[in-house]
């Protein structure tokens, strides 16, 4: 690890300012840490769900609320989980400097993400007739957890649109500069994974008991 090795690698001005050469970037670490703390937040919420559920005892959902229907959440999963694929594809593309891949990939994800939110809305339209956030603790948990996740999807979509707009402008991303694409991608994958955890906890486990 002597000084000289490094110098050779990094003295030309070009090499000096690119985001690429070696190792993880600052932004990458920043985003990973951010996602770590957000994931803990969801863990706390889901933990609260199970805590209240097992402290409550008795049938779950309580107060005669029907067990959550599965069809729609499964559709939602089928829409949201694959939405990570176009992001990966787009990111790979821009790493090679293919801007068209970035643009189409982001657009595809945008469509999938919006579809997901529409499905959430239709689900709420139905469940709200049966119970609301103020009915009981189950209702509070259900809406707050899914709503908080929905909000994250919304934020993720905002980030994706923002990237899309920036990429349409040109002069933003390329093979040497795509840190922001990667960071948004991390966030989006995170939103996906959290959904899987939510489907499992809120929709599947009540059927297991």
């Amino acid at each position: 690890m002597s000084t000289r090795d490094g110098i050779a690698a990094a003295t030309s001005t070009e090499a000096l300012t690119t985001e690429l050469p070696a190792g993880r970037s600052l932004g990458w670490w920043g985003m990973v840490m951010f996602v770590a703390t957000e994931a803990t937040l969801f863990a706390c919420l889901i933990g609260s769900y199970f805590y209240l559920r097992f402290q409550h005892g008795g049938p779950w959902p309580p107060d005669g609320i029907a067990k959550p229907a599965l069809l729609r959440p499964l559709m939602m999963t089928a829409v949201l989980l694959p939405s990570s694929i176009p992001v990966v594809w787009a990111e790979r593309g821009i790493r090679r400097g293919q801007r068209w891949r970035l643009r189409t990939g982001l657009a595809a994800t945008l469509v999938l993400g919006v579809t997901f939110l529409v499905l959430v809305a239709t689900e709420y339209a139905e469940t709200l007739r049966e119970f609301t956030m103020t009915t009981n603790a189950y209702g509070s948990l259900f809406y707050v957890i899914t709503g908080f996740h929905g909000f994250h999807v919304f934020v993720g979509l905002t980030m994706i649109s923002w990237l899309l707009v920036a990429s349409l402008r040109g002069g933003s991303f390329g093979a040497h500069r795509h840190d922001r694409v990667r960071n948004v991608a991390i966030y989006w994958h995170f939103v996906d994974v959290v959904w899987a955890a939510i489907v499992f906890s809120l929709y599947l486990t009540p059927r297991l008991s």
């Binding site: 805590y51 209240l52 402290q55 009981n136 603790a137 189950y138 509070s140």
Partner: peptide
């Protein structure tokens, strides 16, 4: 949320729990 929007996370009368 409990205070302002009427949720019941901490309200034992509606399935919540004070120890949470």
């Amino acid at each position: 949320l409990d205070r302002r929007f009427g949720t019941h996370f901490f309200d034992p009368a509606h399935g919540g729990n004070a120890l949470l």
